[in-house]
């Protein structure tokens, strides 16, 4: 349907054909769409869905690594980890603001998260079971996120694009600290080498799943690409990730847990085995290893903070009366 011409799409989406044509022409010229501009309802809806999911991923994403702040094994690692988790809170904050420019409120978005209605990245529903998982998250998970976010930095919606530019700069530091940790430990003591191998073994496949379903099973992709929200497909990004990571991990002497992984001269790609999509859908639908724990932690923080938020509102109201 979305390879079709603009009149047909206007009918499908119940939009004014001329406005839609003008909107698509702006995107074709590479202009950014800004908050007050006309946009199709579906464009707004898809962006709120994506940006709020992205914000939720940052907020829930604080938990797996945050759990290791008190156990980080050197002062340097501890300071890096706190700063990294703090950055994730900051990214959540910019992204909620970006979604607010489209008319969503933070309260609505948080309600959607806490009620289980909104999704967040499936990767955060896995446990961090050893310290080296923090390195794997940095190099693999943040590395994967950067590929997606670098694409989104060029997206057609101005506030999302600008948030992504800033987030990508910080994510690059996150990736580098993870990479540095994995490389160091892969050449370290037997304990460290075993820890790193175990971490990569567990995080490899879940990271490949982060890019989402195969293009054929990704219902939103065509329209998102047409409107310049996405410029590359899930499978293209996933392949680029494997091409980057496979040789680097192997150079560290780390085994990638995929017997079918091999370099293909003809295509220049690293070919990989089949992804366990049953696991992917199980985790997305709420039945991953840590879904219940992550949501419980978010709800607990929200409930424990209720009296604090009420106090802030009450104080602000009293201060206004005095003015």
């Amino acid at each position: 349907m979305y390879g079709a011409d603009v009149e047909q799409i206007a009918i499908e989406l119940n939009e004014d054909p001329q406005k839609l044509a003008d909107f698509e022409a702006r995107i074709a010229r590479g202009e950014k769409i800004e908050p007050g501009d006309w946009m199709p309802t579906e464009y707004r809806r898809q962006l709120i869905r994506m940006i709020s999911q992205h914000a939720h991923s940052e907020v829930v994403g604080m938990l797996p690594e945050g759990a290791w702040i008190t156990r980080a094994p050197s002062l340097r690692r501890k300071l890096i980890l706190i700063a990294k988790v703090q950055d994730e809170a900051g990214h959540g904050q910019y992204l909620y603001h970006a979604a607010e420019t489209l008319g969503a409120t933070r309260e609505e978005m948080l309600d959607a998260l806490l009620s289980g209605k909104a999704k967040y990245s499936s990767i955060f529903n896995y446990h961090t079971t050893t310290w080296a998982d923090n390195g794997a998250i940095g190099w693999l998970v943040d590395g994967a996120a950067i590929l997606n976010q670098t694409m989104l930095a060029r997206c057609s919606y101005g506030p999302y694009s600008r948030a992504m530019v800033r987030i990508c700069m910080e994510e690059n530091f996150h990736r580098k600290q993870g990479q540095e940790m994995i490389i160091l430990y892969s050449q370290g003591t037997p304990t460290q080498r075993a820890m790193v191998q175990d971490a990569i073994t567990r995080w490899w496949w879940p990271t490949l799943m982060m890019f989402g379903p195969h293009d054929a099973d990704s219902p939103n992709s065509a329209l998102l690409i047409r409107w310049g929200i996405k410029t590359r497909t899930n499978d293209q990004l996933r392949q680029e990730f494997v091409n980057q990571l496979a040789p680097d991990l192997q150079a560290c002497g780390i085994q990638i847990p995929d017997p079918e992984l091999r370099y293909d001269e003809a295509s220049g790609n690293w070919l990989f085995g089949a992804i366990d999509w049953d696991e992917f859908w199980r985790v997305i639908k709420g039945d991953g290893p840590a879904n219940a724990e992550r949501m419980a932690a978010r709800r607990q923080a929200h409930e424990d903070g209720r009296w604090v938020r009420e106090a802030l509102s009450a104080y602000a109201a009293k201060s206004q009366v005095q003015l």
């Binding site: 604080m62 702040i69 300071l79 706190i82 988790v85 809170a89 900051g90 904050q93 923080a301 802030l312």
Partner: peptide
């Protein structure tokens, strides 16, 4: 203080209180 990171009453304090810990 660092134990609050990710569990603060508002997102802005996940940022600010983590900074105090740092």
């Amino acid at each position: 203080n660092s134990e609050w990171t990710g569990h603060a009453p508002i997102l802005e304090e996940d940022i600010a209180f983590a900074n105090l810990a740092l």
